[in-house]
Simulated scan of single mutants.
Amino acid sequence: MNKRALSLALAAGVLALAGCNSQNQAHKDEASKGSEAVKQAGDKTIAAGLDQNGSFFKAAKAAGLDSTLAGPGPYTVIVPDDAAFAKLPQGELDSWMKPESRAELTRVMTNHILPGTVLAADIGKAIDDGKGKALLATMGGGTLTATREGDNIVLTDGAGNKATMANADETLANGVIHHVDGVLMPAKKA
């Protein structure tokens, strides 16, 4: 390799590395905001912060996710209220709670969990940066689309079901809970 080609390759490498570092720093800055909120939350975990008699906690327990939500995290958990579960077709939640349906229940529940601590402001910024929408990857391998309707953040699943954030940023020791008014289903298996 001649000197000029080597110099150009080195310069390109330095520029690429600088770009990665500034991008990584932006991600670290955003993550530190959520992490700081989690530090201020004390010792109460997401599992302990959920309504122990609520449909979401009962379903999380049936799926074996209660111990995960009591673990170190951090997680962002999108919790449908009991009224949202009541809107499901009659008997669907009861069917999911059966041991033979644990895999399907787990798919539904992990569609409500995001890795890391993602505050409502982070989602709002992602929507703004995405020119009106942001894609959020779930722990279940799905994608939720975040948009705004007026002042509200609305999450849409792969089937087009929508859930509006009603109470966001309940910060706990291992992450954050956002309460929503709808159950977000995973995409149908191909």
Rank of each mutant, 00 (worst) to 15 (best):
A146C: 06
A146Y: 01
T147Y: 01
R148N: 12
E149L: 10
E149R: 14
G150L: 09
D151I: 10
D151R: 11
D151F: 09
N152A: 15
N152G: 06
I153Y: 02
V154D: 00
V154H: 01
V154I: 11
L155F: 04
L155C: 07
T156I: 02
T156F: 00
T156E: 03
D157V: 00
D157H: 00
G158V: 07
G158C: 07
A159I: 05
G160F: 01
G160L: 04
G160V: 00
N161W: 01
N161S: 13
K162N: 04
K162V: 01
K162P: 00
K162G: 01
K162H: 04
A163C: 08
A163Q: 04
A163E: 03
T164S: 08
T164N: 03
T164C: 03
M165R: 07
M165Y: 06
M165I: 15
A166S: 15
A166R: 15
N167F: 12
N167E: 13
A168W: 04
A168M: 10
D169M: 08
D169Y: 07
E170T: 14
E170G: 03
L172H: 10
L172E: 10
A173Q: 12
N174H: 06
G175R: 02
V176T: 10
I177K: 03
I177S: 05
I177W: 05
H178I: 07
H179D: 12
H179A: 14
H179S: 15
V180W: 01
V180Y: 01
V180E: 06
V180R: 02
